[in-house]
């Protein structure tokens, strides 16, 4: 059971001496990101809620990107994906990513279509 751990995060920007210090380092990173998310969620800066990118508020884009960022560190450092071989990493990550992106794409498109039917239809849905 020889276990080699890769001890650097942020593409080598941050190097840790041992696996244990790396774990605490990752905890700090995740806590900071969560704190930023909660802070943004409470403050809701107007510049971020009023501007949109691909019909979604910038604030929501930030939340989703930060979530994926957190997911990356949980998988890579807590679940030791960083130490697994490339084949395993890709088999797990890309399978999920492709299927989920596809599912999300069709369902959201369909939801948006139904919204338009409700919105511009001749039928009143509010009575």
């Amino acid at each position: 059971m020889a276990h080699e751990h890769k001890l650097e995060i942020f593409r080598g920007l941050l190097k840790f001496k041992s696996n244990v210090t790396k774990i605490w380092g990752v905890l700090i990173v995740l806590s900071i990101v969560t704190a930023i998310e909660v802070w943004l969620g409470i403050v809701k800066p107007e510049s971020l809620t009023e501007n949109t990118f691909i019909r979604m508020k910038l604030l929501n884009w930030i939340f989703i990107i930060l979530t994926i960022f957190k997911a990356y560190y949980i998988t890579w450092d807590f679940m030791h994906m960083r130490d697994e071989v490339k084949g395993l990493r890709r088999a797990v990550v890309w399978t999920g990513v492709f299927l989920i992106l596809y599912l999300v794409f069709i369902l959201l498109t369909e939801g948006d279509y139904i919204f338009n039917v409700y919105d511009t239809g001749f039928q009143s849905w509010d009575f």
Binding site: V92, T95, G96, L99, I100, L103, V104, L107, L108, E110, G111, D112, I114, F115, Y118, D119
Partner: peptide
Amino acid sequence: IVSDGLSFSGFLAAYGFSRFKFID
């Protein structure tokens, strides 16, 4: 984990569907 992750994304995508349906 991969298959269970897909179950959860199914739930969350369905949530997104309903939310887009009643986005306003």
